[in-house]
């Protein structure tokens, strides 16, 4: 069993981060574009932007997390990769766990990097920026876990991004509350709670996602 983890992880990383399943930079560009749109909508007032900028970065991160959902699980289901793994005796839960890790690696740290120019655009810096980055570090694993879970649930369905987004947004509300809440109040406790919810989601995703893939495979 341990022998398959490294090859699967490398394959997933090559697919997700290497650009064979759509350009991984596109969600990040979308993230920056949303951060750029906001000042156009509310005006270039620097104190207002500095006060609301952290929340805007969180909302943009949630929206950007919806974009890659349709290529996380569906192509493998269509090509029969999951059937092959099942024949080899590799549990769907293991594949989904590795997929969550690979998705986070190709989405979380790049998003944290993209948050730097976004925060410069919104005029937030110093202490607030540190809290945004720490919050993203705590929250993006949970976001990646929900993403893979929703992708597994909708893999066999042609519902499109609208359906996946509708499923993802309510589940991501607690991450947003604590991640963005850490900006307003004390800080550390919000980030810790955001990390705790993230861990719960990471714990649920392999089992729920694995069961969803099995249900989709067996029809």
């Amino acid at each position: 069993m341990t022998g398959v983890i490294a090859p699967l992880l490398l394959r997933d990383l090559a697919l997700l981060a290497g650009g064979r399943r759509g350009n991984p930079l596109l969600p990040l560009l979308f993230f920056l574009a949303v951060a750029m749109l906001f000042p156009f909508a509310v005006g270039p007032d620097a104190p207002l932007l500095a006060r609301t900028g952290g929340g805007v970065i969180w909302v943009a991160a949630l929206l950007a997390a919806i974009l890659p959902l349709d290529r996380l699980v569906a192509p493998d289901l269509e090509q029969g990769c999951f059937d092959q793994w099942a024949l080899r005796g590799i549990a769907e839960e293991l594949v989904i766990t590795i997929r969550v890790l690979a998705h986070w690696l190709s989405f979380g740290p790049p998003l944290m990097l993209a948050a730097l120019p976004a925060s410069a655009l919104l005029g937030i810096g110093g202490d607030t920026l540190a809290r945004v980055e720490l919050g993203l570090l705590a929250g993006t694993p949970g976001l990646a876990a929900i993403g893979v879970l929703i992708a597994a649930l909708t893999a066999g369905l042609r519902g499109g991004a609208a359906l996946a987004g509708l499923l993802l947004i309510p589940l991501a509300v607690p991450l947003l509350i604590f991640g963005a809440g850490a900006l307003a109040t004390g800080g550390a406790s919000g980030i810790a709670l955001c990390g705790a919810i993230s861990l719960v989601l990471v714990a649920i995703a392999p089992f729920a996602g694995g069961a969803a893939v099995r249900a989709a495979r067996e029809g």
């Binding site: 649930l153 066999g156 499923l167 729920a208 069961a211 969803a212 249900a215 989709a216």
Partner: peptide, 12 residues
């Protein structure tokens, strides 16, 4: 598709 997908979302 399998209705178990819906049941999994219900539990999540």
């Amino acid at each position: 598709a399998s209705s178990r997908i819906l049941a999994i979302f219900g539990l999540v």
